Computed example of a mutant assay.
Amino acid sequence: MRLLVLGGTEFVGRAVADAAPARGWQVTVFHRGRHDPPAGAVSLLGDRADSDGLAALGVGAWDVVVDTWAGAPTAVRDAARLLAGRAGHYVYVSSRSVYAHPAPAGLTEAAPVVDGSPDAGEVAYPQAKRGGELAATGAFGDRALLVRAGLILGPRENVGRLPWWLTRIARGGPVLAPGPRDLPLQYIDVRDLADWILGAVDRGLGGPYNLVGPPGHTTMRDLLDTCVGVTGAPAELCWAEPDTILAAGIQPWNDLPLWLPPGDLHAALHGTDVTKALATGLRCRPVAETVADTWTWLRSLSGRPPLRTDHAPVGLAPEKEAEILRSLGRHAD
Rank of each mutant, 00 (worst) to 15 (best):
V5S: 02
G7M: 10
F11H: 15
P21R: 12
L45H: 14
L54F: 15
A56P: 11
A56F: 11
A61R: 15
D67R: 12
W69C: 12
G71D: 15
P73D: 12
R77H: 09
D78P: 02
A84L: 05
R96D: 02
A111S: 11
V113M: 12
D119E: 15
V123I: 09
K129W: 11
R130N: 07
T137Y: 05
G138C: 11
F140L: 11
D142I: 10
A149W: 04
G150V: 06
L151Q: 01
V159K: 09
G160W: 02
G160S: 08
R161M: 07
W164K: 00
W165R: 04
T167Q: 14
I169N: 02
A170L: 00
A177D: 04
G179P: 06
G179C: 03
P184Q: 04
I188Q: 03
V190G: 03
W196R: 10
L198C: 02
D202F: 05
G204D: 01
L211G: 00
P215A: 07
T219I: 07
L224P: 09
V228W: 10
A233F: 03
A233Q: 06
L237W: 05
A267H: 10
G271C: 13
A277D: 00
L298F: 02
R299Y: 05
S300N: 12
S300P: 10
R304I: 02
P306W: 14
L307G: 03
H311A: 03
A322W: 10
E323H: 13
I324V: 15
